[in-house]
């Protein structure tokens, strides 16, 4: 009679061990999912071609320099009817333009800029509250001179594109985004949890998700603008990365009153995370092993019973 007793004890121990394993894995999985949502941080990478964007600079520091820039300073009161002059800026609206010169714009804290690449390949920069230029002035830079200026870097709140009504020259051409997430367990490198594209004419802004969690200002993006020259249509290439936190993209399509909100869900995080997939796989494997063992012990038990009878 010793044999079945041993079998029973061994069976019990194995059963408990397996169940503990499964429960541990299950808890780990739940923790991982919860962790991935509320503890780990996400950021957006945005890469878009546009002919218009706006940036608000909450902190100073960025400086943009351009050669051969024409500065148009608007008249306080326009005087329609007078000769328009030979310059790039209409004398009926602007003070007579000086010869093109090198201009350095110092983006002070709380300054703003509205940039349009005009259809005639002139970059139109309209700063507000910036240093180095007269307030209200509009800066015109031919696209070839802009190429020489290189990268324009920024750190601020960005809006890409403009509501594309008829006649609008500034609009988003195309682009894509990636949501990158750094997972708390395991690999420190971030993984891409979601990707998508922007359609022409959409207006893209970065907003934050309202959560209980304290997040740094994730709507702040750091990026750069470079000329994207092509035969057909020149544009501005904007590449920007949001701060790590809980940002979401707000994408407005013309004529649709409610903006589309782009964010990752827990399913995106789970699917994109190899460790979570591995834990889930282990969990299902161990569950099936437990099941198999159950059956196996039952068979052995039945065989032993029939042998003792």
């Amino acid at each position: 009679m010793r044999h079945p007793f041993l079998t029973f004890r061994l069976r019990r121990a194995l059963q408990i061990g397996c169940l503990a394993c499964v429960a541990g894995l299950f808890v780990l999985l739940i923790l991982a999912i919860v962790g991935s949502r509320w503890i780990s941080e996400r950021s957006f990478l945005i890469e878009a071609r546009t002919t218009a964007f706006e940036i608000a600079f909450p902190v100073g520091g960025a400086v943009w320099g351009f050669d051969n820039a024409t500065i148009c300073v608007p008249l306080k009161i326009p005087s329609p009817g007078i000769a328009r002059g030979e310059g790039q800026c209409d004398d009926q609206l602007y003070e007579p333009d000086e010869a093109p010169k090198t201009v350095t714009i110092d983006w002070k804290a709380k300054s703003k800029v509205r940039v349009t690449l005009r259809a005639d390949d002139i970059l139109e920069i309209r700063p507000e509250g910036a240093g180095g230029v007269t307030e209200g002035a509009e800066i015109l830079v031919p696209v070839d001179d802009w190429k020489r200026a290189g990268v324009a870097a920024f750190d601020g709140y960005i809006t890409l594109g403009r509501d594309p009504g008829s006649g609008e020259q500034g609009y988003l051409l195309d682009g894509r985004y990636e949501i990158r997430e750094r997972f708390i367990f395991g690999d420190a490198a971030s993984s891409v949890v979601k990707t998508g594209v922007f359609a022409r004419g959409e207006v893209v802004e970065v907003a934050t998700v309202n959560t209980w969690q304290f997040t740094p200002d994730a709507t702040l993006v750091r990026g750069h603008i470079t000329p994207f020259l092509s035969d057909g249509l020149n544009s501005l290439m904007v590449v920007a990365v949001t701060r790590a936190g809980n940002p979401q993209l707000q994408v407005t399509y013309p004529g649709v009153p409610e903006p589309r909100r782009v964010r990752s869900t827990w399913i995106d995080s789970v699917i994109a995370n190899p460790m979570l997939l591995a834990v889930a796989l282990l969990l299902s494997l161990s569950l099936s092993v437990v099941g198999m063992l159950e059956k196996f012990w039952a068979l052995i038990g039945r065989a032993a019973n029939s042998a003792t009878k």
């Binding site: 326009p78 329609p80 800026c89 209409d90 002139i122």
Partner: peptide, 14 residues
């Protein structure tokens, strides 16, 4: 009423 619009830093025809 004379309507004057500005496009590309230029007055358009009234």
């Amino acid at each position: 009423l004379v309507i004057l619009t500005v496009v590309d830093q230029q007055f358009q025809d009234p």
